[in-house]
Write a protein that binds this DNA or RNA. Structure first.
Lengths: 215, 215
DNA sequence: TATTTGAATATTGTATACAAAATACTGTGT
DNA sequence: ACACAGTATTTTGTATACAATATTCAAATA
């Protein structure tokens, strides 16, 4: 039995974890009673959590039929990258215009432990990568931007499918974004952030086209 | 008593209407029992509707205290415009790349009834304006983009406060966006869309700064 | 054997019940 | 009159109950 100020929050977190780790598989129907029983709660807070997950595009609901773990196809992954490209571009621009030192130090800290000339631990780097992009958004302090950044949940899908570029390839791009922000040139910062995500998107497109993996 | 395949959908629509028309005023607490009784439903589907509205930033919930109609301050309005600028820019780019004739005709239809040399009906134009921007997003067919476009709900807030530019000022900009899309030049289309929204945002900033209206 | 029909079962959506927490009220003391 | 404590009322969050719909399974038919 989960204890908390509100039950739906921990239920939400647990369900999200189960989805991202594929304990609940894409396309799988979420049997409310079964999960609720496993977590020791009733369906009421469970539904609340499921609805929140639906608003974050991690599950889909079909009226009178139930909730299903969202399945992402190639086009949907690419569409999310299209949105991220311009949103993170805007974020980088705003941060560059601001010239805040603590912002810079926080962004730097994400990658200070990595050196392209040595080996880079994939798992650790993937986490740093995720943190960096999330931080870029958070630091702007734009509530609407934060709210809609849930679209990056799908990132884990990309990670799982091994569709990422290598750390050696992206580390320099990450530092280029940070340097552009430091320079105070908003347009340069936006361009750097956009170029980085556009390249990832293009990699995604070619990889999936060549492998013929269309779901 | 509302009848429908699911009760929460019409409840959601009715609540949204009440919020956008200020039948429920900004900052006002939403007394669940009272509204539920008025609509002839129980709190269960009502909560579902409220949660959906929360995910769309039209209401805010404070745990153990309830739901409140969201109050937008200047900075939040501007922040939404920041997001819209880049998102609609991206949308315009994609549409330009596509060169689809039916897309063009749909966009044109929004403003075909207006002539800057004659008088333009404010209400009618405001509706056409909203339709146009929504259409720009819809036509791209990007699910994530559609999902996050709820941020434009606060547009009505701007309308209510009379912070808009005149039709005479924006009609030409709207046609410029359409023409850029027709030309097939993605960068030009993106630039036109961004310039349009950036100008509206700047108008918003100066108006609110000068009037000293900071909430 | 494949298909259809219908009953049995399971699942959803809504209503109601109830405990815990927040709010409003009332009377007391200063 | 004002502040405060303690009680009553209201409101939320969760659990349970139940009707309506969807799904499953098995027997009957072609």
């Amino acid at each position: 039995m989960i204890e908390h100020s509100g039950l739906s929050t921990p239920i939400y977190q647990e369900l999200k974890r189960m989805i991202l780790t594929q304990e609940l598989k894409p396309g799988e129907k979420i049997l409310q009673e079964k999960i609720a029983e496993k977590l020791g709660v009733s369906r009421t807070p469970m539904m609340k959590a499921l609805q929140l997950l639906e608003s974050e595009m991690l599950v889909e609901s079909i009226p009178r039929r139930g909730f299903y773990v969202k399945v992402f196809n190639v086009q949907e992954l690419i569409d999310v990258y299209d949105c991220r490209e311009v949103l993170e571009g805007m974020a980088a621009r705003r941060l560059a215009e601001r010239q805040d030192l603590s912002t810079l130090s926080k962004l730097e800290k994400c990658f200070s432990g990595f050196d392209a000339s040595e080996g880079i631990d994939q798992k650790k780097y993937a986490r740093a990568d995720g943190d960096f992009h999330k931080l870029l958004i958070d630091l702007v302090g734009n509530q609407a931007l934060n709210k809609i950044y849930f679209i990056s949940n799908i990132y884990s899908e990309v990670v799982r499918k091994g569709l990422l570029r290598t750390p050696e390839e992206t580390l320099a791009e990450h530092w280029a974004i940070i340097e552009a922000i430091r320079s105070g040139d908003g347009s340069a910062a936006e361009a750097a952030a956009r170029a980085h995500i556009a390249r990832s998107r293009d990699t995604l497109m070619t990889q999936l086209n060549s492998s013929g993996n269309h779901d």
